[in-house]
Design a protein around this nucleic acid. Structure first.
Lengths: 220, 220
DNA sequence: ACTTACTTGCTAAGTGCTCAGCAACTTGGA
DNA sequence: TCCAAGTTGCTGAGCACTTAGCAAGTAAGT
């Protein structure tokens, strides 16, 4: 996936097969095709939802034929899994030097900031996650089970570190609190999805941070 | 919807048309049919997900024919909306005498308790909500936009009351904090859905309450 | 009788996937 | 260096299947 805005601006692509450069390695062709298909699937999820991702729609939006998805990925399900992994890669928290409580607050703040700064990617991520929760896409459930565990473990470790350096209360349970924090940011982002007025409201972000920041420190 | 467990224990219903009592008012027939259809739809969502709710599957599971849903509700979409409203009705918070911070904590505790005590209904609620967020079911999005606003307003008022009676910090924003709290409980419940091991872990519930309880009081 | 509940046959639209075949690329022998 | 043989990317017709909804009919209540 190069960027997310090349959803409709590939002009002649949908008409005939893409002849961008005259000569390409087979590996290059394959990689380029995969990228285009993932871009197309991304755009369709963003615009019309997970259910609208049909093999034909993806192939044609990417400038190929109806059969390309099955040829490239084997099945629609595997395309969805690859898409999920790709989108998940965008939301990997960056340590950024901070530690303990400040680190946790930073991760949460970043996450909620993404709701505004990269609304399209967040929309796709949440729609894929919703499909996984609803058990509508077999492969997605496994992909997000792994992803959730990773995110929780990351926050658990940050919380444990904060407890060790004294920036986080000693009586909290790092693992369980990590579940609550992941829930907090996801749940807020989901509401923003249903009601866009919330997404453009910085008070929600501030309230979430305040909730955490007054809950974690040793002194209130 | 009578109860949630009558999903498979209506013996002869699936074989022929239901002849439960020989004589019924037209209004009674209609009401009974509606209830059975909603029960069937509920069970299908719980067992196989929102997408598996086809008009034929619902009709036949309820002991009727394929066409009954369209006859009774006009369209599949309207069945889904009615189902959502019915399920939402189960999750209306009961005031229960408490006020301010204790009231807020009580509502959150109840909600998280439901993840274990009425897992089936919670599962259906979350799957419907996920479908609404994913924009897969047109009518559901509107139904849950209303529902979310109601739940947020309810918590906002409880928080404002707590601020007035001194049980909640004066510097919090009731409306924005309500969004965070709704997100917290929904996000936790969603994770429990994907990873059932979390659902049976009381530490998560305790951690969520601790997060709130140390965040809201005037004294830390 | 008449209205309403409900069934059943049908349709049109849409689904993922298969497969034969063509065209572009790669490889290796001369 | 060239060119045939082999491999891979990709197409597009078609298959088997599912869907929501309609229309015409039958049965049950008034």
């Amino acid at each position: 996936m190069s960027t997310e805005q090349n959803s409709e601006d590939r002009p002649a692509a949908a008409v005939a097969a893409p002849p961008p450069a005259p000569s390409r390695t087979q590996a290059e062709r394959r990689a380029l095709t995969e990228e285009r298909l993932l871009d197309a699937a991304f755009a369709i999820v963003a615009d019309r939802g997970v259910r609208a991702v049909t093999t034909a729609a993806v192939g044609e939006r990417a400038g190929y034929s109806r059969g390309i998805v099955n040829h490239q990925f084997g099945s629609r399900d595997q395309l969805m899994v690859r898409l999920a992994e790709t989108v998940q890669g965008r939301f990997t928290p960056a340590p950024e030097g901070r530690r303990g409580r400040a680190h946790v607050l930073n991760v949460v703040d970043d996450y909620l900031g993404t709701v505004r700064s990269d609304a399209r990617a967040m929309r796709v991520f949440l729609r894929l996650w919703a499909a996984a929760v609803g058990d509508e896409e077999p492969g997605l459930s496994a992909a997000f089970t792994r992803r959730d565990a990773f995110f929780r473990d990351y926050l658990r470790d940050a919380l444990a570190e904060g407890r060790a350096d004294g920036s986080v209360r000693a009586d909290i349970d790092p693992a369980a609190t990590a579940v609550a924090l992941v829930g907090l940011v996801r749940g807020i982002a989901m509401q923003c999805q249903v009601d866009p007025a919330l997404a453009s409201d910085d008070r929600v972000r501030a309230a979430a941070l305040a909730l955490i920041d007054h809950g974690l420190p040793v002194r209130g």
